[in-house]
Simulated scan of single mutants.
Amino acid sequence: MQLFRWCAESRPAFLLLLLLTLTVASGCAGRSMQQEPVVVKRTQMHMGTLVSITAVAADKQAAQTAIEAGFYEIKRLEQLLSTWIPGSELSGVNQAAGKHAVGVSGETLELVQRSLDMARLTEGGFNIAVGPAVEAWSVTERQHIPTQTELQQLRSVVDWKSIQIDPEARTIFLPRQGMRIDVGGIGKGYAADRAVDVLRKAGATGGVVALSGDIKTFGDLPGMKGFPVGIRHPRQDGVVVATIDLQDEAISTAGDYERYFEQDGIRYHHILDPVSLEPARLCQSVTVIAREGTVADGLDTGIFVLGPERGMELVERLPDVEAVIIDVQGRMMVSSGLRDRLRYP
């Protein structure tokens, strides 16, 4: 959850305590040539947001090499998955909607398949086909409130169940003209997972990959256990509701304060209920902690739509998944596996 903004369109960032820790660790490493291992952190712009990679390695050169490999992997995935890049694979799939299937890479096929799995798991709460309805609301631009007639006309093109995947031919087909898929609600978590894999292979023994509010950690900081991360209050900027130490885990959040406008005292935000095609109203924020960034990133939106009761029931059924849910009244629910791990201010 966000304690400051990376950029105007960023997802919530969990990084205040984390960055303070990394700054101290990096500074100590720089002052003592004999201290091992070292901590190196770098930031670049990818996937429409600032991406921060921190690597713990035997020496500075090894950490730098691992970080470069991580950034290269994220950039490579962006070229496949970003719908803002006209020549990306997903842009090609969208352009062929209603016409023909499109061949894609293994990574694109995997992420779309996992997105559909997440949609089934959350009863459609997570929906990579809902983009046309999100655009109709235009929360950050025109701030338009669509009529029920407008929304009704979009229902046929936001049906995630109609997306066709052929694993053997490695193709994706959108059967209706006007359909499009956007993996922005899960792609950053996926990219964080892949970048961590690359960092490990390059020799990093620990670190963090943070694509705005989607964070994946592995290993430990020197002299510490895990990586401390603060969770923001959804209605009080700069206020932390709890802190948790992440160990080989990912964290992601969905909140109604990320992108929204208010009109006549009503908050209209970008997380839509795929049934009503209107902003989901049962939560203020949902933070998910999981082993995989892909899971955390996809589940936070789906649970936000499901609401606190159904969402927490889902979390308690899933292995290696925990959540902090703040409902529309501001009440906080914590999953059973987190109750002894959270620290409160």
Rank of each mutant, 00 (worst) to 15 (best):
D237A: 12
P274A: 02
R259C: 02
T217I: 00
T205R: 08
G298F: 06
G219S: 08
V239D: 12
A290M: 10
V295S: 08
V286P: 05
R235V: 11
A202D: 03
P279C: 08
V229I: 14
E249M: 13
M224W: 10
L199Y: 03
T243P: 11
Q284I: 11
A204S: 09
L221C: 03
V239R: 15
D220T: 03
L199Q: 00
L272P: 13
E249Y: 05
G203I: 05
V305I: 01
E262V: 07
A296D: 12
D264K: 09
E249R: 13
Y257F: 02
R232I: 11
A202C: 01
P222Q: 04
I244W: 06
R281I: 12
Q263W: 05
C283E: 10
G203D: 06
E278C: 13
R291I: 11
I215T: 01
D237N: 12
V288E: 01
R291K: 15
D248A: 09
L211Q: 14
G206Y: 00
V209S: 14
R259S: 02
C283H: 10
I251E: 01
D264F: 09
V286T: 08
A254F: 10
A202E: 02
G226V: 07
P234W: 08
G219Y: 07
G223W: 09
I289P: 02
M224G: 08
P228V: 08
K216Q: 04
G219H: 01
V241E: 12
G213Y: 14
T294E: 13
S212R: 09
D237K: 10
D248Y: 09
R281T: 14
G238N: 09
G298P: 03
Q236F: 14
P228E: 09
D256C: 03
V208T: 10
E258S: 12
Q263N: 08
V295F: 05
V209C: 13
P279G: 08
G293E: 10
D220Y: 06
V288N: 03
A242P: 08
V229M: 05
Q263C: 13
P234V: 07
G230A: 12
I231E: 04
T217M: 03
P234K: 03
V239M: 15
L277K: 05
R200S: 09
G219C: 01
T294K: 13
G219E: 04
G213K: 13
I244G: 07
A254S: 11
K201M: 14
L199W: 04
Q263K: 14
D245F: 15
G302M: 15
L277E: 02
I231L: 07
G206N: 04
V241H: 08
L221F: 03
A254E: 09
V288D: 00
I244S: 04
D220G: 00
Y260P: 07
V208L: 14
S252V: 04
I271E: 07
H269E: 06
I251V: 04
V209K: 15
G265A: 01
A204F: 04
D297R: 06
Y257L: 05
C283M: 08
L199H: 02
V240T: 14
Y257G: 09
S252F: 00
T301K: 12
E258Q: 14
